[in-house]
Design a protein around this nucleic acid. Structure first.
Lengths: 154, 154
DNA sequence: TCAGTATAGTCCTAATTAGAACTAATGTCA
DNA sequence: TGACATTAGTTCTAATTAGGACTATACTGA
């Protein structure tokens, strides 16, 4: 992870870089700890939450819509399948593909943990920021994100 | 990683959560890719940059000042030592402790890669935000970070 | 003084990352 | 139609994470 700058001069962007990293890691620690207390790893939670309220989806879709890499997804799904939370169904449309869906047990788990986690995280944001500040923060973060995502930059 | 919300109502904080995660990951990808192109992993860069311009420090200090966990630090240092970039010196003050410092080769590496990386990242921020916006973003992110770091919350 | 507690750094486990290789299956286009 | 290109999901490597166990060393306080 990019460390605190070593005084390379008065660069205004350095005043944003560190708070971005620190805020994210502070968030991540709370996020991770709470999800683990609910009996899942972050990646497992990500998969469960993405599959919740859907008819299922392929590994490719799952990987695209979560932050789980396709190489890791196999292992994450293996362990979720072992927990009885997801099942793999061969796709009718494409013999290469597998449909991943929540079992009824998985859907129950989703209904249990998803709202719990959202409402656990809520006060951290609300005690720090007003509604208007949240709107500002969102705007600035999205702008930054888009800057990083522009093609052929540098 | 916490996924996009599944419409649990009109919760203003959810409008911040996703951009925070997305901005961070967009940043991380650029960060990681560039550091790797300089011949180091992120953790190695973190260690090199933290040791740069110092007389060295203990593993404990290094772990505290970087985002490298103490369990991982041993391996990171092993590989950096193998590259000839750091050396381990027994501490005179405490026989349990080891002082980690950059070799002259490591110091050269630091002088080479540190500015390169900072100036590589700079335009991403500057093309997205004005100086005033950076100041606002910093303020809001630090506030959020502090909210997550408060003890015994929830 | 010394028993009990805490700490430094290493080692270990389970889980994950990026990236790539692989085989079977599908898509493209001359 | 068929050669070539692309894709789906699995497997693999090197590196990393959090958390904890471990041994040697240092600290604390009765």
């Amino acid at each position: 992870m990019t460390p605190p700058p070593k005084d390379p001069g008065d660069e205004p962007f350095l005043k944003v870089l560190r708070p971005l990293v620190e805020a994210f890691y502070a968030f991540l620690e709370k996020d991770d700890r709470h999800v683990r207390a609910l009996g899942l790893t972050l990646s497992q939670f990500d998969v469960i939450a993405t599959l919740g309220d859907t008819e299922g989806m392929t590994c490719k879709q799952l990987s695209d819509e979560t932050l789980v890499t396709k190489g890791t997804l196999t292992g994450v799904l293996d362990r979720l399948e072992a927990k009885g939370l997801v099942e793999r169904v061969p796709s009718q449309a494409d013999r290469r593909a597998t449909i991943i869906r929540l079992t009824s047990k998985g859907e129950k788990k989703f209904q249990e943990v998803f709202p719990k986690h959202i409402y656990y995280m809520k006060p951290f944001f609300e005690q720090a920021l007003t509604g208007a500040e949240m709107k500002t923060l969102r705007e600035l973060l999205l702008r930054l994100k888009e800057s990083f995502e522009q093609k052929n930059k540098n």
